Simulated scan of single mutants.
Amino acid sequence: MIKMYGIKNCDTIKKARNWLEQHQLDYQFVDYRQDGLSTAQLAEFSKQLGWQNLLNTRGTTYRALPAATKENLNEQSALALMLQQPAMIKRPLLVQNSTYMLGFNAGQYQQLLDN
């Protein structure tokens, strides 16, 4: 089963969900805000994708952080911030079997799901 992680009101999430539905692919959507995210799950995402890739540095939540916080980020502090503020996690995060993919790209989704 495909799992998609994100925040339901995100425009990119909406595009990705529409794509999956148009291709009649069953998936489970996990909303970081409503369903929560465990420390273990986030650690696994970080292991698979790297914490720097998970951290959404383009979002307003990240940009609102004090400069000192941004300058001193390491994996532990970044993961703690992402747990506190799930909007700082790039989305969507798609998981199928043991394959992890960040962001939405129709071509990449097609390639992943054809395998």
Rank of each mutant, 00 (worst) to 15 (best):
A43N: 09
W19N: 08
Q28F: 07
G59N: 03
K70L: 06
G107P: 02
K70W: 01
N9Y: 14
Y27N: 08
T57W: 08
M88Y: 00
L54C: 03
Q96C: 07
A68C: 04
D26Y: 07
Q52S: 11
Q76A: 13
Q76F: 04
Q110G: 14
T12W: 08
Q52F: 08
Q108K: 15
A40T: 11
Q108N: 13
Q76W: 03
K3R: 12
P92L: 04
Q22W: 03
F45N: 02
H23V: 11
G36L: 06
A80S: 11
G36F: 09
Q111Y: 13
I7Y: 07
L73V: 06
R33D: 12
T99I: 07
L113K: 09
Y100H: 10
L49Y: 05
H23W: 04
D26A: 15
L73N: 05
D26F: 12
Q111C: 12
L102I: 13
D35A: 12
P92E: 06
L20R: 02
G50E: 06
L102E: 01
I2R: 08
L81Q: 00
F104G: 03
K8R: 15
I89H: 01
Q41T: 06
E44T: 14
Y62R: 02
E75Y: 00
I89N: 02
L25C: 15
Q48Y: 00
P86L: 06
K47D: 05
N74P: 05
Q34D: 12
R63C: 05
W19R: 09
L20A: 09
G59Y: 05
N74T: 02
E71S: 13
Q76T: 12
I7Q: 01
G50V: 04
T39V: 13
S98N: 15
S46C: 10
L65P: 02
N97V: 04
N56E: 07
I7G: 06
W19L: 13
H23D: 11
N9C: 11
I7N: 03
